[in-house]
Design a protein around this nucleic acid. Structure first.
Lengths: 251, 251
DNA sequence: CGTGAAGTTGAGTATGCTCAACGGTGGTGG
DNA sequence: CCACCACCGTTGAGCATACTCAACTTCACG
């Protein structure tokens, strides 16, 4: 019997092999390596990574770090889901991203985290001490190249999100969001449909610049129009993908 | 007498020395080098950069490139201002940034530009052919390091903008925008106040997720409350900076 | 001066928010 | 084991912020 009840976490644990992370050469066994910084590393680089990495496990709601904290570590999600967000003084919150296996977080220009990070589901991550990782980057330019590529991809994603936040309607936002989740699931080698939606309505609202109520109403509306079906366990069936794509693009 | 009327462009030309860009070693004379990719490069790197760079001059409204185009070049703004934006099929537009001297653009993950770019004022840029710049990056890891730093800074800026777009009111957006312009002017060694606002109300609206009318009304409102004074030549005096800072943060 | 673009202001409206009630569900403790 | 409680999601009613449509002014430029 596992130390925790796997059903509590929606079965996301299948996405990685956290137990292997505790062995001597965790990186060789990593199931999301091809998605992340460690893609295309040779044996030497991999064992250098193994030497500095440690593993972190979080249960839903656990904070990973807070905005403004000294950025001592960089992380790689290996299983589960993480939300990153910024807050205004009065408590208004903007999610700036949901991170899934293969995603990287903790890049910090001024040595403090620019956002807070918190587990959405049961989550495992690789943790790299910043100074040690920087040494590796110096030794292996290929890794630095890869990191630049990932950062520039993040930048493109952020710009797409700005378009969504600034110019899309609630309906368009929700449709875009569901398609994004689906596309990212495919990237991780999972089914395109149905899509797992592990985060709360409130979290979705804070990601899309909407309130919980509007998110809920819009789901209802899409459901009634036959575009989606809400399934058990927080999964959503994208019954009419072309329809959703039209909605997402505003035509 | 200059070839063009300097007054037409709000005197932005002072920010750089475009004529020097035509000489043998343009990069040595670059006045914004300390702000950009070329900061802290040695003599060898600088002359390598000089060898591959060419100069681009744009007048207001000139396109630099369009979203989706093959990303053959990277650019560095040396004088003026550039707007970058994404469009929805029906014409709705979201500015994803305004770029000033020292800013870099053209990073493209999938070899096509992720956004369109267009001159706001009379503008000069350095242009680097992508393959040649990539060769240099390979030769000089310090440059790649610097580029990663710049990308990660851009990412932090983008996240701040998401917070603005998703969670701030019109009033808060305008106040944040003016303060951002002021801060960036200071970074470039210009006066903190008054701040140059070279872009149209429409452009500002598309940057903040508002309409022209709301931008105009909000300026009027801030003017009447004594927080700002609209000056000649598109300049704005931030008469009550602490007040604006309070407004921008929502308290 | 005349013209067209940009900016401002007004009136009315709509989208999404606020406040509130209610139902379901899972975890907790008697 | 069951009752309770807190949290999450859903729905409704009313409202407010920012949008739309429109007129008018200002300004830059020819």
């Amino acid at each position: 019997m596992p130390a925790f009840d796997i059903k509590r976490f929606g079965g996301n644990l299948r996405e990685a092999t956290p137990r292997n992370l505790e062995t001597r050469s965790p990186c060789q066994a990593c199931t999301v390596r091809h998605l992340t910084l460690c893609a295309a590393l040779g044996e030497a680089e991999l064992s250098a990574m193994s030497a500095i990495v440690s593993s972190v496990e979080l249960t839903p709601g656990d904070p990973l770090f807070d905005e403004g904290e000294p950025a001592g570590y960089l992380f790689n999600v290996t299983a589960g889901a993480v939300k990153i967000y910024k807050l205004l003084p009065d408590g208004r919150r903007q999610m700036t991203g949901f991170l899934f296996p293969g995603d990287f977080l903790g890049l910090a220009n001024d040595r403090t985290y620019a956002y807070s990070a918190e587990a959405v589901t049961y989550t495992t991550l690789c943790r790299f001490p910043r100074p040690k990782l920087e040494n590796l980057l110096e030794m292996y330019p290929k890794m630095e190249r890869r990191l630049l590529g990932m950062a520039s991809h993040e930048l493109a994603v952020a710009q797409e999100q700005m378009l969504l936040l600034g110019r899309k309607t609630a309906r368009e936002k929700i449709a875009s969001f569901l398609l994004m989740l689906s596309d990212r699931a495919v990237q991780r080698g999972q089914a395109e449909n149905p899509v797992a939606v592990p985060m709360s309505r409130n979290d979705i609202g804070d990601f899309l610049g909407l309130t919980t109520e509007t998110v809920s109403r819009t789901f209802t509306q899409l459901k009634q129009s036959g575009a989606i079906v809400l399934l058990q366990g927080g999964k959503i069936d994208l019954s009419d993908r072309p329809g959703l794509e039209h909605i997402a693009e505003g035509d």
